[in-house]
Design a protein around this nucleic acid. Structure first.
Lengths: 174, 174
DNA sequence: CCTCCTACGTTTAGGCCTAAACATAAACCG
DNA sequence: CGGTTTATGTTTAGGCCTAAACGTAGGAGG
């Protein structure tokens, strides 16, 4: 197995090939993407074993976290998630077909549709969430608690700064 | 615009709804995904203005960084990228149709296909790379140089640790 | 009231990816 | 040597997403 280029190697290659290329961001940006992909693929594997996909788990998670009575409008779901309204509509349709949520017209807004967790959906997320989060804690356990908290703070500062620069569209997951 | 849940809010919601849920990873993992998505969407916007897509830029970047004579086999491309061999095949086919690369049978390995940057492909990546990287440096300029380097080191440690735990499949981009 | 406008969802077309099936050159081996 | 395995790529089927077109309920304004 070829050892993939590390971020430092990529930056060095650009400077060698094109002296003057601005490379200061690569050490952070590339690694964020690499780590994100490793974690995302691992979660997909865990969920595949449980017979559920990421989109559905994301949906059920948001509803479960909202607390009793476990319902939100489509608009609220869109605002709390990283994806578009159309994708939410499709995710909800799939979850509804699987009996995990229920759609009922009427609710808060003008023409809102309320999405509610069914008992089956509630059971599904209970079955899943600890498995997923326990696995994740295990994955980052190489980082001692204090360094983990420090990293979280630094990422929080970066995220806040980016959000200010780019407008608000950075949303949730799990 | 509804303010999205922040990672701390998500962790707090899980602890409120399900005391005992392991939430220590959320502050790092969720933020990694959020930051990654903000940066990826921004890059997609920059590239859309330049009339090129992320996959193509990624391909041209890897070839350009390889240095003269700007060619790699499909297998090497797969090893240096975050995607599957099938996707590489499709990306190369698209780039070839656009005249940006050339495929020639034969090369290093057993039955290798060599992918070479054409002059048009070379020009395309020259036109693009500074724009993309300059934008990225600007985006993370809220982080002073020393903190940026420290964050890069911490991410590097985390990535190394994750790669060891999960096997080697963490690859490149840009 | 009636019309227009705006908020809210859904549907559709298309893109790109993954996983798996497929094709085949080259090497291995009895 | 000739059959079998292995390394490489490509193709195909299907999934999920985005962007944009499309419906339509309720207000707002005249």
């Amino acid at each position: 197995m070829v050892r993939p280029d590390d971020a430092d190697g990529i930056a060095a290659a650009w400077r060698r090939e094109r002296p003057g290329t601005p490379t200061e961001s690569i050490g952070v940006v590339t690694r964020i993407w690499q780590i994100g992909k490793l974690l995302a693929d691992d979660r997909a594997r865990v969920l595949a074993e449980l017979g559920i996909d990421r989109g559905t788990m994301d949906l059920l998670s948001v509803l479960r976290r909202a607390g009793e009575p476990y319902e939100l409008t489509t608009r609220e779901l869109t605002a709390r998630t990283l994806i578009t309204a159309g994708a939410i509509s499709q995710r909800v349709a799939r979850a509804e077909a699987a009996g995990l949520v229920r759609r009922t017209p009427g609710g808060a807004g003008r023409r809102a549709v309320t999405v509610t967790l069914t008992d089956a959906g509630h059971a599904e997320i209970e079955r899943t969430v600890d498995r997923v989060l326990t696995r994740e804690v295990e994955l980052i356990s190489g980082l001692p608690a204090e360094r983990r908290r420090q990293l979280a703070r630094e990422l929080s500062d970066l995220l806040t700064d980016l959000t200010d620069r780019l407008g608000p569209p950075a949303r949730t997951e799990i």
